[in-house]
Structure formats: structure tokens, C-alpha cells
Computed example of a mutant assay.
Amino acid sequence: MKKLIVLGLAALGMAILLGGCTESVTYTYEDMLGEWDFPDGSHISVMQADDDPSAKKLDIHWTADNTEYFVMADGTASGATFTGKFAYSETDVTDPNNQILIIYYGDDPDEPLKDVTITLSLENGKLKAVCTGDQPIGGETFTLGTL
């Protein structure tokens, strides 16, 4: 009888342990292709060149502290991690004429294009983008993006 109880408890314990496991899904950059809108008004375009699928592109638009940013990045991807170079613009959203503060194209040898790595993931079908690298995009995280 003790063996039956021990076996029953062991089976119940295994069922609980295995039932709590979730299957891990691995996504690629290609799984994220599209136009993603975020609850705070940010937008990310995840793209790749038609003629060269290895050439990846990300456009990211967001607003922080009365400044609207637009980053244009070109690079490559490994899995769902984008690594590349970017140019950007900044606009003062409080200016009634919506004047651009900075346009940074990276075409000046003294100020080359900036570096960025962006890790993309899907959480419950919503895009998350974690950015590291040069400012202004370095340190930004975007969550809950929808197609």
C-alpha cells in the first residue's frame, strides 16, 4: 500500500512539474517583418531588401521629453537580433513650426553613422524591441507592439 501511495505522489509531482513547463519558441528577424504600432504612439518598421534578404532595415519613430526621434538603421540579423548603423533626426514637438533640431546622416567623416543592436521578441504576439548602442536610441525599450 505504501508503494502505491509513493508511486501516486511521484506521478502527481511529475504531472505538476511537466504541466508547468511552457514550450520555448525561437523567432527570427523574418518573423517580425511588418509595421508595428505601440501604445505610446511609437512605431517600428521591420524590413529587409527585396533584392538582398540579408540586408535588414529598421525605422523607429518615438517621442520623449518633447522631442520626436526618427532613426533609420541598416544592418544584418542573427536570429531576431539586428546589428547595424543608423542615421536619425530630432524634432521639437513644442515648436509650432515643427522645426527639425538635428538631422544626422552620418556622411561626415568626423561624425560617422552610429552603432545599434536591437533585440526583437514576441511576447503574447506583441513586439518587444530592446535597443543598445549609441544615442539617441541606445537604452530605449519598446513593448506591446501590434501589427
Rank of each mutant, 00 (worst) to 15 (best):
L147C: 07
I137S: 02
S54N: 08
Y88K: 14
V130Q: 12
G34P: 04
T81H: 01
P136R: 06
D37Y: 11
N97M: 00
S89Q: 13
K57W: 00
L18P: 06
F86P: 00
Y105P: 09
T63W: 06
G125D: 12
F82N: 10
I44P: 07
L33K: 06
I16G: 14
D59N: 01
D40N: 00
W62E: 07
T76M: 05
P53V: 00
T67E: 15
E111F: 05
D92F: 05
V116Q: 04
E111Y: 07
K128V: 14
D37E: 12
E35V: 03
E35S: 05
D51C: 03
I137V: 15
G20F: 11
L58Y: 01
G106S: 13
Y88T: 08
P112M: 12
G125W: 02
H61W: 00
P109Y: 11
T91I: 10
N124R: 02
K56H: 11
P39I: 02
I118G: 09
T28I: 00
L4G: 01
F38I: 10
T141D: 08
S42E: 04
Y104T: 15
F82Q: 00
T28N: 10
E23H: 10
M72V: 15
T67V: 06
P112F: 02
A64G: 03
E23P: 01
D65L: 13
H43F: 10
A73S: 11
T119K: 05
N97D: 15
N66V: 09
S45V: 10
V6P: 05
Q135I: 07
D107F: 08
T143G: 02
T22N: 15
V71K: 01
S89P: 03
S24A: 14
K56I: 13
